[in-house]
């Protein structure tokens, strides 16, 4: 697993590496792809994540659920270090991706984000053409080959269930797309760089049932190769697409279980109340 990370570590193999005592594979479980240990997170002096320790497994879908403002998006953004950009943020604890501590100063954050793609809660098309939006990631990574770019754009748009609607207007401004189309464009854009972890923050919140089920199909398909972490407010969606579900509440993980277990037989009262819609 370490071999995959060679570009990320930038020829400095002394980077902090995850150490484990117990064997983690077996019982049909895939290896651990992402692990957080005692993760606390702060905006200024305001702590929003408390002692989060989670293991997210390779080639699985992990759903994050919980009431608004409980820290789901913040947690998601710690995995690709997008929080670094926000001034005044800090954390304690560790986050590992592929056994490497990603907050280690020797880790190149650009290489990390190449592997860990992200779909934001709000869709943010660039003020460019549809084509240029999807080609942006590969281009800045150095891809200058027109043919290969065209293939990537087509493939990504097809995966995001948008190709048929835009194939005749690829050079129109992305701003002319509808809200739901823009959201799928952002999914296509996130796929275009070929990540192996995909963080999705409510990717279906502005979509009609048809597109939503296409996105869910996509998630199923991607699961074969990718590790997916998805935030959703839709309990049915969480139940449908995810293998494991974490219930966040006021910055803490109350329960992190196999999805079936969490929905049918939750350990905690608060989880039960939330998934049955009694609060939140």
């Amino acid at each position: 697993m370490l071999k995959k990370l060679e570009p990320m570590i930038n020829q400095t193999p002394q980077v902090t590496v995850r150490e484990t005592s117990e064997p983690e594979v077996g019982n049909g479980l895939t290896p651990v792809k992402i692990e957080t240990r005692q993760l606390d997170f702060f905006y200024g002096s305001n702590q929003v994540l408390f002692d989060i320790s989670m293991q997210i497994r390779e080639r699985s879908v992990t759903a994050l659920i919980g009431p608004s403002g409980c820290g789901k998006s913040t947690f998601l953004r710690t995995i690709n270090r997008m929080n670094d950009i926000v001034e005044g943020t800090s954390h304690t604890g560790q986050v590992f991706v592929d056994d490497v501590e990603i907050y280690d100063p020797r880790v190149d954050v650009v290489a990390l984000r190449k592997r860990v793609g992200m779909v934001f809660q709000k869709s943010i098309p660039f003020p460019k053409s549809i084509f240029d939006n999807v080609a942006y990631g590969p281009r800045i990574a150095g891809n200058r080959n027109k043919k290969s770019l065209r293939e990537i754009v087509e493939h990504s748009l097809k995966q995001a269930a948008l190709w048929d609607e835009v194939k005749d207007r690829l050079h129109d401004s992305a701003m002319t797309l509808s809200g739901g189309q823009q959201q799928r464009l952002c999914i296509a854009r996130a796929l275009s760089t070929g990540p192996d972890v995909l963080l999705m923050d409510e990717p279906a919140s502005a979509l009609d049932p048809g597109s939503t089920s296409k996105i869910e199909d996509l998630i199923f398909e991607l699961k074969e190769k990718y590790t997916i972490v998805i935030v959703t407010h839709n309990m049915q969606q969480a139940a449908r697409v995810s293998d494991e579900t974490a219930f966040f509440f006021e910055g803490q993980v109350i329960e992190f279980e196999k999805t079936k277990q969490l929905f049918t037989n939750p350990r905690e009262k608060r989880t039960e109340d939330y998934v049955t819609g009694r609060f939140g």
Partner: peptide, 21 residues
Amino acid sequence: PSSIRHASYALAATRWQTIRH
């Protein structure tokens, strides 16, 4: 909008690429 910058960074752009493009 800073969201444009964030979207660019999330696609593994460097700071210079984000500013430039």
